[in-house]
Design a protein around this nucleic acid. Structure first.
Lengths: 126, 126
DNA sequence: TATTGTTATACTCTATAACTATA
DNA sequence: TATAGTTATAGAGTATAACAATA
């Protein structure tokens, strides 16, 4: 349910959840080659190609050949990419808020705490 | 991650998560027409056909024409279906236990409590 | 020869649409 | 004419395999 609602909230920006994931990786890592991104996201390199194609078409990322190793396409967020990422975060917060509206503040922080422990213990970013 | 691990744990029984879902619906409801099951599971009726085909081939469900309305195929768990469902529950518990091994008992019960509230508030079985 | 990125292809999951039998 | 089930088809999402450029 969370993923479906998140996807629906991103659609007006012409983005899908995986695009938001790629933007997040770039924000955290500064720049990264496409293969780095694929490893970080746990997806096939060929998928990063199409995600990056789309984000580049939207003006959200810059693709630059690494002069030191011309096989590498280095990805970097643009200002527009940072704007879109902010929109993704807003969408995520709205979905979370809607989904958890039934929880008391105490239940919510206990849930968030438990999930953070799970993420850390299972090697996920948190 | 949970879904992937659950699917892997079911594979030796020649089942997928949706099959476990269908078996669970039948256990809870006793018997049900395929259309009932589709509505309960929130999937297309055509998907229930293939799920039921597979479960019937495994001997897990019985399909009987409703004599009162011969359009309806009534689904019912067999003994073998109950055995397989028990195996699914074992698999689910094993995945859950592995995934949450890093939580203290207090964190675990707080997490479970929070998720139960979420499920109830969002119309999911719990 | 190995690696990065790309393209072509295929597979999984599931829905929609068309069809059959029954009501 | 409407409904339950079935079959045929299509679409989304993503992986694998083949290929090109560079190392």
């Amino acid at each position: 349910m969370a993923t479906d609602r998140f996807a629906a909230a991103l659609a007006p920006m012409d983005l899908k959840p995986k695009h938001a994931g790629l933007l997040t990786v770039l924000q955290r890592g500064g720049t990264a080659s496409q293969l780095d991104v694929a490893r970080t996201m746990g997806v096939a390199p060929s998928l990063v190609v199409s995600l990056a194609d789309h984000l580049q078409a939207l003006g959200a990322v810059r693709r630059t050949r690494d002069p030191a190793d011309r096989r590498r396409q280095v990805l970097e967020l643009t200002d527009r990419g940072r704007e879109l990422l902010a929109g993704c975060l807003d969408a995520a917060r709205a979905v979370d808020d809607g989904l958890t509206a039934s929880l008391t503040p105490g239940e919510l922080s206990a849930l968030a705490g438990g999930l953070a422990v799970l993420a850390a213990a299972n090697g996920l970013p948190h």
